[in-house]
Amino acid sequence: MARIIDWFNTADKTVTRWMARYAVLILRISVGIVFFWFGFIKFFPGLSPAEEIAGRTIETLSFGLIQPQLSLPILAAWESLIGLGLITGRFKRATLFLLFLQMIGTTMPIFIFPAETWKVFPIAPTLEGQYIIKNMVLISAGLVIGATVRGGDMVADEDLADEADHRFQHQARNPD
C-alpha cells in the first residue's frame, strides 16, 4: 500500500508541476483562439450569434452615433486583435487592456436590454444572457494572464507557495 501511495504522490507532483509550468500558456492561447474566432466570424454578416445584440449595444452606448454597420467590423477587428495578442503573447498589457475594455461593453446588454437577456431576473438568463454571463470566465482568465505580465508564474512547490503566502501576509500587516 505504501508503494501505491508513493507512486500516486510522485505522479501527482509531476502532473501538478506540468500544470503549473504550462497552464497559463495554454490558458492564454485558448482564450486567444476564442477571441480570434468570435471576432473573425463577425467580419461575415449573419455568422455570429452575438452580431445583432452587439451592434445594438454599441449603437445604444454611443447614443445612436455609431451604427451597427460600422461598429461590427470595428468590434470584429478589436476581438481578432485581442485573440492574436493572446495567441502570440506579444503586447500583453495592451491586449489585456483591450480585453477588459471589451468585456465592459460585452456585459452592458444585461443592463440595457434586460428583457432580452433574462427570462426571470436575476435567476434565469436567456441564451443571450448566458452568452454574456460566461464572460466572467474570460475576465477571470484575463486576470490570471495579467498576473504574469511582469514575470509572475504559477508555483507547484508547496513549501515555496507557503513561504510566498507568509511574505504576502506580512506585507499586508506591515505596509511600510
Rank of each mutant, 00 (worst) to 15 (best):
R3C: 06
I4H: 12
I4A: 13
D6C: 01
W7R: 14
N9M: 05
T14M: 04
V15E: 02
T16V: 05
W18T: 14
R21A: 15
Y22I: 02
A23W: 10
L25C: 00
I26S: 11
L27G: 07
V31M: 13
G32N: 05
G32E: 07
F38M: 14
F40G: 01
I41M: 10
I41R: 14
K42F: 09
F43G: 08
F43V: 01
F44S: 12
F44R: 07
P45Y: 09
G46M: 11
L47G: 04
L47F: 14
P49C: 06
A50T: 15
A50I: 05
E51Q: 15
E51L: 03
E52S: 09
I53R: 02
I53Q: 07
G55W: 11
S62V: 04
F63H: 14
L65R: 11
L65Y: 05
I66G: 07
I66A: 03
Q67V: 11
P68C: 01
Q69T: 14
L72P: 05
P73F: 02
I74S: 06
W78V: 08
W78S: 07
W78C: 06
S80E: 10
L81M: 10
G83Q: 03
G83N: 13
L84D: 11
L86V: 08
I87D: 06
G89N: 08
A94N: 01
T95A: 06
L96K: 03
F97H: 00
L98I: 05
L99N: 08
L99F: 02
F100K: 03
L101T: 14
Q102A: 12
Q102H: 12
M103H: 08
M103S: 15
I104K: 04
I104H: 04
I104A: 15
G105D: 02
G105S: 07
T107N: 11
P109V: 03
F111I: 09
T117R: 04
T117C: 13
F121Y: 15
F121G: 07
A124M: 09
P125A: 01
P125E: 02
T126G: 05
L127I: 08
E128M: 09
I133C: 10
I133R: 03
K134P: 10
N135C: 05
V137D: 10
V137Y: 13
I139T: 10
S140D: 01
S140L: 13
A141W: 11
A141P: 09
V144T: 12
V144E: 01
V144P: 03
I145M: 09
A147L: 05
A147N: 14
A147F: 05
T148W: 07
V149I: 15
G151N: 06
G152E: 12
G152N: 02
G152C: 01
G152P: 02
M154S: 05
E158N: 10
D159I: 13
D159E: 15
D162K: 14
D162L: 15
E163P: 00
A164G: 00
D165C: 00
D165M: 08
H166A: 13
H166Q: 10
R167T: 04
Q169C: 00
Q169I: 03
H170G: 01
R173C: 00
D176K: 00
D176G: 12
D176S: 06
D176N: 09
